[in-house]
């Protein structure tokens, strides 16, 4: 098989106060896959996400992105390869205009001039937000901000995009628009979510995380149909939702 786009091996981490957050977490994602990361609150999902580009460093274990190990030497390149879309777009969009925000990432990697402009235009076009390039982010709706947040990451041409709760706070129409955009992108994706129908729709494969470990790894439909597994990990489908009847 090909070199995994992302490989996480035996990752363990505890907070300075001693709380264990990650316990031998391990999985790998191949290029082109779209994978959902499911789990209850406090399972360690967001902490895991922060390990994927070296914002947090593990006590033990390793992260390898497209063959490149995450260490001091490679951390900058790893941050280009792993694009994280944060849960709150207000955390992600901090520049005076949308265009400058999308340019921030590639500019940090020395892209400039006409190429930078092309990167910005391409990324904004991919999420259908090119017409707001000159506007300040706080004039956009939450749905638009979330799409721009995706563009800020796409502009860095990452190996893998990691989305933290992409459908949270979106109304049904914005949620649908975002799904259409995400499926139209030809990119490897890891999506942390509590929105199980969204996971089923967008990600053929899912990982279940609980108490800092990966408990299950398999087809999303199978995982959502496994009542024992779902119950043991505090996962619940919306009332009346049958994963085997949809799509």
């Amino acid at each position: 098989m090909s070199v995994p786009a992302l490989e996480v091996v035996d990752l363990s981490y505890h907070y300075p106060d001693g709380t264990e957050v990650l316990r031998n977490a391990g999985f790998h994602i191949h290029p082109g896959e779209r994978v959902a990361l499911l789990g209850p609150n406090g399972a360690g999902k967001t902490t895991l996400v922060f390990h994927l580009n070296g914002i947090f460093r593990p006590d033990s274990g390793s992260v390898i992105v497209a063959g490149l190990p995450l260490d001091d030497e490679h951390v900058k390149e790893i941050r280009r390869r792993v694009g994280i879309v944060f849960q709150d777009p207000d955390d992600q969009l901090f520049m005076p205009t949308v265009g400058q925000d999308v340019a921030f990432g590639p500019a940090n990697y020395g892209v400039e001039g006409a190429e930078l402009q092309t990167r910005v235009n391409d990324a904004l076009s991919a999420v259908g937000m090119l017409d707001v390039a000159g506007r300040p982010p706080h004039h956009l709706s939450v749905g638009q901000r979330r799409r721009v947040a995706v563009a800020t990451v796409l502009a860095m041409k990452p190996e893998i995009v990691v989305l933290d709760e992409p459908s949270s706070n979106l109304d049904p129409a914005s949620r649908r628009e975002l799904a259409d955009i995400l499926t139209s992108l030809d990119i490897t994706m890891l999506m942390v979510t509590h929105d199980l129908p969204y996971a089923l729709e967008l990600c053929p494969r899912s990982l279940v995380m609980n108490e800092g470990s990966i408990i299950a790894d398999g087809s999303t439909r199978q995982i959502l149909s496994d009542r024992e597994l779902m119950k043991a990990n505090r996962l619940e489908l919306p009332l009346g939702f049958d994963p085997n009847l949809t799509l």
């Binding site: 922060f50 900058k76 992600q92 901090f94 921030f104 990697y109």
Partner: peptide
């Protein structure tokens, strides 16, 4: 929030110097 914004900046390769446009 300041801390989270800083993480978001770091995640996109920020190393202490704001880029010029």
């Amino acid at each position: 929030r300041g801390e989270r914004v800083y993480y978001a900046m770091t995640a996109r390769g920020f190393a202490g110097q704001m880029p010029t446009f």
